[in-house]
Amino acid sequence: MSETFTKSMARNIFYGGSVFFFLLLLALTFDTESALPELDNRENLTEEVALGKRVWEKNNCVGCHTLLGEGAYFAPELGNVYQRFGNSTDAIKGFIMSRPKDGIPGRRSMPQFNLSDEELEGIAQFLKYTSGINTQNWPPNIQG
């Protein structure tokens, strides 16, 4: 009697299944790309925002904070910090500027990054832009 469970069939299923689902992923990715303009707040993606994203990256902000829930869990979520700070970019800038160089005894504290005015404005605008992304109503409340 013939073999009822063969290695070659298992192999074919692996190849076939992988290709199948990879193509499906590509199809959904393609659809997502066409949907993004309505969701990603790109109309507000200015040069300033792009600079702010660079500042965000260069200072490894994601090493402590989450942004839209992704990052480290040591410091508050910043996807909605613009709203939490009363829809004020000045409040964001003020907070960043006022961080003590040597920290706060016994407490977590954000480092003093000594950002230039341009960088400060950029990061604040970046966070404002981020808060305008359609995140399907996440986070559940203002606390992030």
């Binding site: 009822t4 469970f5 063969t6 069939m9 298992a10 299923i13 299944g17």
Partner: peptide, 11 residues
């Protein structure tokens, strides 16, 4: 056993 290769049935 079911017809065909058992592996396809897992799938």
């Amino acid at each position: 056993t079911p017809p065909g290769d058992l592996a396809i049935w897992i799938f």
